Measured scan of single mutants.
Amino acid sequence: GLTEEQKQEIREAFDLFDTDGSGTIDAKELKVAMRALGFEPKKEEIKKMISEIDKDGSGTIDFEEFLTMMTA
């Protein structure tokens, strides 16, 4: 499992990506986040990433899903 410290770091990354503070990361926010990390993702790639992570089919990534992605 994760230490509380690791969870906190992932939470901070999540909050950075969640620019509108909605508690979820949408495609637009993910794209901005990827760019910040030096990637140039295409729209299809973003969609694919979200569909792989987005277990509940909401079209957005919540913290639990993000946590799973970061620790996979």
Rank of each mutant, 00 (worst) to 15 (best):
K28H: 11
A72M: 12
G57D: 07
M69A: 05
K43T: 15
E44C: 13
I10Y: 10
D20G: 05
K28M: 09
E40C: 15
A36E: 08
D20Y: 05
S58Q: 09
K47N: 09
D26A: 12
G57S: 05
E4T: 09
I25M: 05
K43Q: 15
Q8V: 06
G38L: 02
L37T: 03
F66T: 00
I61K: 00
T24S: 08
Q6N: 07
K55W: 09
T19F: 12
G1E: 06
D62V: 05
I46E: 03
K43R: 11
M70Q: 00
I50L: 15
K43C: 15
L30H: 00
E52L: 13
S58Y: 07
D18L: 04
A72W: 13
L37C: 15
E64R: 07
F66H: 00
K55Y: 04
L37F: 05
A33H: 02
S58K: 12
R11D: 01
M49I: 10
D15C: 12
F39D: 02
D26Y: 11
E9K: 14
E45F: 11
K31Q: 15
D56E: 09
L16M: 09
I25A: 00
A13S: 04
M34E: 06
T3P: 04
E44N: 06
E9Q: 15
D54Y: 10
D56P: 04
T19E: 07
E65S: 14
E5M: 09
T24F: 08
K43W: 15
E4A: 13
E40I: 11
T68Q: 14
E12G: 10
K47F: 10
T19P: 07
E29S: 10
L2A: 03
S22A: 04
F66P: 00
I25P: 00
E12I: 11
A36N: 07
I10F: 12
E64Y: 05
D26C: 12
I50F: 14
G23R: 02
G1A: 08
K7T: 06
R35V: 11
A33F: 14
I46L: 11
L2H: 05
F66V: 02
E44F: 06
R11T: 01
A33Y: 05
A72F: 11
K55P: 07
L30F: 06
K7Y: 12
L67E: 01
M34D: 01
E45T: 07
K28C: 14
F39H: 06
I46C: 13
K55G: 08
S22H: 04
A36W: 14
L67D: 00
R11C: 05
D15R: 12
I10N: 01
I53H: 11
M70K: 00
E45Y: 10
D54E: 09
E4K: 13
G1Y: 13
D54V: 14
F17E: 00
G1S: 10
F39A: 02
E29W: 15
K48I: 09
G21S: 05
I61N: 00
F39L: 08
S51I: 05
R11P: 00
D56S: 09
D18G: 03
T60D: 04
E52M: 14
S58A: 04
D62W: 03
M34N: 01
R11Y: 02
E64F: 07
E29L: 13
G38Y: 03
F14E: 00
M34C: 07
E44Y: 05
G57Y: 07
I53D: 03
A33C: 12
I46D: 04
A33N: 01
A13K: 10
P41K: 06
T24E: 06
A33W: 07
I46N: 01
S58L: 08
A33D: 00
T71Y: 09
L37S: 02
E12T: 10
M49C: 11
E52G: 09
A27F: 14
E52F: 13
F63V: 03
K43E: 15
D62I: 03
R11S: 02
G59M: 11
I50K: 01
T19V: 08
G23E: 02
I50R: 01
F14G: 00
G1M: 08
M70E: 00
D26H: 10
K48D: 08
F66R: 01
Q6S: 05
E40Q: 10
S51C: 12
Q8C: 13
I10M: 12
E12C: 14
E44W: 10
V32I: 15
G23V: 01
K55A: 08
D15S: 10
G57N: 08
M70L: 13
E65Q: 15
I46G: 03
D20V: 04
S58P: 02
T60Y: 06
D56K: 12
F63Y: 05
F17W: 06
G59V: 03
E29R: 08
K7G: 02
L67N: 01
K28I: 06
A27Y: 13
E52K: 12
D54I: 13
S22E: 01
L30N: 00
T60G: 05
L30Q: 00
D15W: 07
F17A: 15
T68I: 10
A72G: 12
V32A: 15
F39W: 14
E45A: 05
A27L: 14
A27K: 10
I25Q: 00
D20C: 09
G38N: 02
L16R: 11
Q6H: 11
P41G: 07
